[in-house]
């Protein structure tokens, strides 16, 4: 069965006919070709597919696109801003991920920066408990996490 949905992704409106079974991840990647959002497990276990739905981080591999009607969605592609003259401005969290060496293979990175952005939207001075709340369940096999934690703390400082 197909359903029609209207969604806003990274500030653009889309009207789509989707299959009832399609996940949001599938629609983002295969229909809208927003391949920045990654599939690490497809089961809600790794966090690589995180996107913001109405500002809240969500695992797009385990929610259905059909349920997204009327929602505002931000993917990793939408975190940086494109200025009028075409220059790209990264968000503070993106910058500090780069500076602190919080990226290695980069496959987990979209999920981590999306979740961290949501955290910094909520608070400019996150406690370690809050960091844990937002990042737990996000898996990275490369970094050992210390650089990621440092990047989040540093971005928080920058935005204060």
């Amino acid at each position: 069965m197909s359903v029609e949905i209207k969604i806003n992704v990274n500030n653009r409106d889309y009207r789509l006919i989707v299959d009832e079974e399609d996940t949001l991840l599938y629609v983002l990647r295969e229909r809208l070709h927003l391949t920045g959002t990654k599939e690490g497990c497809g089961n809600g276990e790794c966090g690589a597919c995180a996107v913001l739905v109405d500002g809240e981080p969500v695992r797009s591999c385990i929610i259905l696109a059909a349920e997204m009607n009327g929602k505002n969605i931000v993917t990793v592609e939408g975190l940086s801003k494109v200025e009028k003259d075409g220059t790209v401005k990264l968000s503070p969290i993106q910058e500090s991920f780069i500076e602190e060496g919080a990226i290695q293979c980069g496959f987990c990175t979209p999920g981590f920066v999306v979740a961290s952005s949501a955290l910094l939207e909520k608070t400019k001075d996150p406690t370690d408990e809050e960091i844990e709340e937002y990042l737990s369940g996000h898996l990275c096999r490369c970094t050992g996490y210390a650089t990621i934690l440092k990047a989040v703390r540093k971005a928080a400082e920058k935005t204060r």
Partner: peptide, 11 residues
């Protein structure tokens, strides 16, 4: 900082 970081952090 790694040169591929920007590509990776922007998706």
């Amino acid at each position: 900082p790694r040169f591929d970081a920007r590509e990776k952090v922007t998706g």
